[in-house]
């Protein structure tokens, strides 16, 4: 039964996806929508060879920005989460501000970053950090808060030091929610870099998309979107694999 269900889980979305693609192809082929408005899937596939040598430097730029920003966001949120968990005043002071800061539309701020930090990689990395930082921090804080109080008391009653409690209980107990934050942030990271690039720069997928859009090469534009999706999924998978490696107990729990 279970095996059949898991096959079903994979087959149904795949079939639905294929049907959608065919429908899209059909609509464009019969001319319901003009090609210069929406290229068909085969048009997009045909565009890839044309994009070939030129696109890679843009991909590399975007991945660099996303990875660097993601890394900085992880580091920053870990430091902040530990501080906020240990010093309640810091948490009380910072948490509301951090939440409010998330209501500011990043897309509106991005041009300012370009004005302040120029058209290099820095303003893009800042956008990525801002976008990724919040989900990771919130998941960390939530994880640290949800550690069983009795468990903490038990360790205290054994005379464990604050560092021992962190290492033995708080850190591993937080890992699971940390990773769920990481997965969300990972998909945001590529998107954040694109938003940053959209507002100007020398290279990057966002810059590329802007250029091909202006020359009405919509097939290449959609090609770039496919690349972005693939990159995001790859990053997501990397995080999931990392989680499986760092948390072997979870994997065995799911198996049984």
């Amino acid at each position: 039964m279970k095996r059949w269900e898991s096959i079903e889980d994979k087959v149904i979305p795949t079939v639905f996806f294929v049907v959608l693609i065919f429908l899209w192809e059909y609509i464009v082929q019969v001319g319901l929508i003009e090609r210069y408005i929406l290229p068909s899937p085969t048009d997009i596939i045909k565009a890839f060879p044309d994009m070939h040598p030129d696109i890679w430097k843009h991909v590399i730029t975007t991945v660099q920005e996303a990875a660097l920003g993601f890394g900085i966001a992880i580091l920053l949120s870990i430091i902040l989460a530990i501080l906020m968990d240990n010093v309640k005043i810091i948490k009380k002071a910072l948490y509301p501000i951090i939440v409010i800061s998330q209501t500011v539309p990043i897309i509106a701020l991005a041009p300012l970053f370009a004005a302040w930090f120029g058209f290099g990689k820095l303003p893009k990395i800042i956008v990525v950090v801002l976008v990724c930082f919040f989900p990771i921090l919130v998941s960390l804080i939530h994880g640290l808060e949800s550690v069983d109080k009795d468990l903490l008391n038990l360790l205290k009653s054994m005379g464990a030091s604050k560092f021992q409690i962190f290492k033995m209980v708080k850190f591993p107990a937080t890992l699971i929610s940390f990773f769920s934050g990481l997965r969300i942030a990972a998909t945001y990271s590529i998107m954040g870099a694109i938003i940053g690039e959209w507002l100007g720069g020398k290279s990057g997928l966002g810059v590329y998309m802007l250029r091909v859009k202006q020359s009405f090469a919509l097939d290449k534009f959609f090609g770039a979107i496919v690349i972005i999706v693939v990159l995001s999924i790859m990053l997501f998978k990397i995080i999931a694999t990392l989680q499986g490696m760092l948390m072997p107990w979870e994997k065995e729990q799911n198996k049984s």
């Binding site: 009795d150 205290k156 009653s157 464990a160 021992q164 033995m168 948390m247």
Partner: peptide
């Protein structure tokens, strides 16, 4: 703290540690 041992109603075993490491936790502390 640190003189008597204390067991709660909940088992409070660490799900990320094997039984042998759970049991040796007091010694590691």
């Amino acid at each position: 703290t640190g003189r008597v041992s204390y067991m709660y109603q909940k088992d409070l075993l660490l799900s990320w540690k094997k039984i042998i490491d759970n049991v040796s936790m007091p010694l590691i502390i």
